[in-house]
Measured scan of single mutants.
Amino acid sequence: HHHHHGSGALAALHAEGPLAGLPVTRSDARVLIFNEWEERKKSDPWLRLDMSDKAIFRRYPHLR
């Protein structure tokens, strides 16, 4: 159930192989992290948004 927010940013994801479903670039990863943060913020208003490279690598090590 993907609803768009204002920016309408869509992340490019790997379609197949071992990385299927994972973001292709760091900016794609940022979109995913932001979208998930927006969702989680509803139940956790104090949740901090962390889109640093460090956060991205921790989450998606293949982007190193």
Results as ranks from 00 to 15, higher is better:
E38N: 14
F57G: 09
H5Y: 13
R59N: 06
E38G: 06
V31I: 15
G8P: 13
E36K: 03
G8W: 06
E16L: 06
L47A: 15
L22F: 05
K54A: 13
E36S: 04
R26P: 11
H3K: 09
A12G: 08
L22C: 06
N35V: 12
D50K: 03
G17E: 04
E39C: 09
A55Q: 08
A20D: 04
R58D: 15
L49C: 06
R59M: 08
S27Q: 15
L32D: 01
F34M: 06
E16I: 08
D28S: 05
L13P: 03
A9M: 10
L47C: 10
K41R: 14
R59P: 01
R40H: 10
H5W: 13
Y60T: 00
H1M: 10
D28M: 04
V31H: 11
A55I: 08
D50R: 05
I33K: 01
L63K: 00
V31N: 07
E39R: 09
P61R: 02
D53E: 09
E39G: 06
R40D: 07
V24D: 01
H14N: 04
L49Q: 02
L32K: 03
V24G: 01
P61D: 02
F57T: 11
S43F: 12
R40Y: 07
G8T: 11
T25V: 02
A20C: 09
E38Q: 15
A11N: 03
W37V: 02
H1N: 09
A29H: 00
V31T: 10
K41W: 08
D44T: 05
S7A: 12
M51K: 02
R40L: 13
A15R: 10
G8K: 10
G8N: 11
P61E: 04
P45Y: 06
D53M: 09
I33C: 03
H62N: 01
G6A: 12
H14E: 04
A15F: 08
A29E: 01
N35R: 13
E36L: 06
A9N: 13
H4G: 10
I56K: 00
Y60F: 14
V24T: 04
S52N: 03
H1C: 15
A9T: 15
G17S: 03
A11G: 07
A11F: 04
E36R: 03
S43C: 13
A29L: 00
S52K: 05
A12E: 15
G8F: 08
S52R: 05
E39H: 09
H1G: 11
I56P: 00
R40K: 15
S7I: 13
L10E: 15
R40T: 06
R26K: 15
M51D: 06
R30L: 09
H14D: 02
S27E: 14
E36Q: 06
K54Q: 12
A11L: 06
L47E: 08
S43L: 15
G6V: 14
P61S: 02
A11Y: 06
S27G: 12
R30C: 12
A11S: 05
K41H: 11
T25C: 08
K42R: 10
R30H: 05
H2G: 10
A55H: 11
A55Y: 12
T25M: 04
G8E: 10
R64W: 08
A11E: 06
G17R: 01
P45S: 07
P18A: 07
R64C: 09
A55C: 06
L32V: 09
R64S: 10
S52D: 04
A9E: 13
A29R: 00
S7W: 10
K54T: 11
Y60M: 00
K41I: 12
I33S: 01
G21Q: 09
L10T: 15
S43K: 14
K54C: 11
H62A: 15
S52H: 02
S43Y: 14
G21M: 04
S27R: 14
N35E: 10
L63R: 00
K42D: 09
I33W: 01
E36N: 04
G6L: 15
H14Q: 03
D44G: 04
F34R: 09
I56T: 01
P23S: 00
A11P: 15
G8D: 11
K54F: 08
S7P: 14
Y60W: 15
R30E: 08
L32C: 07
D53Y: 07
G17L: 03
S7E: 12
H5P: 11
H4Y: 08
E16R: 06
K54Y: 09
D50V: 04
A29V: 01
H3R: 09
S7N: 15
R48F: 07
R26C: 09
Y60E: 00
F34E: 04
A15V: 12
K41M: 08
D50W: 03
D50S: 04
A29S: 01
W37G: 01
H62T: 01
K41L: 08
R59W: 05
R48N: 08
E36P: 00
L32I: 14
S27H: 15
H62V: 00
D50P: 02
W37Y: 08
L10P: 15
A9P: 10
L49D: 01
F34L: 07
H2A: 09
W46H: 12
E39V: 10
P61A: 03
R48Y: 07
W46K: 14
P61H: 02
A9W: 12
A9R: 14
R26W: 08
I56G: 00
P61K: 03
S7G: 12
D50T: 03
P61F: 04
A11M: 04
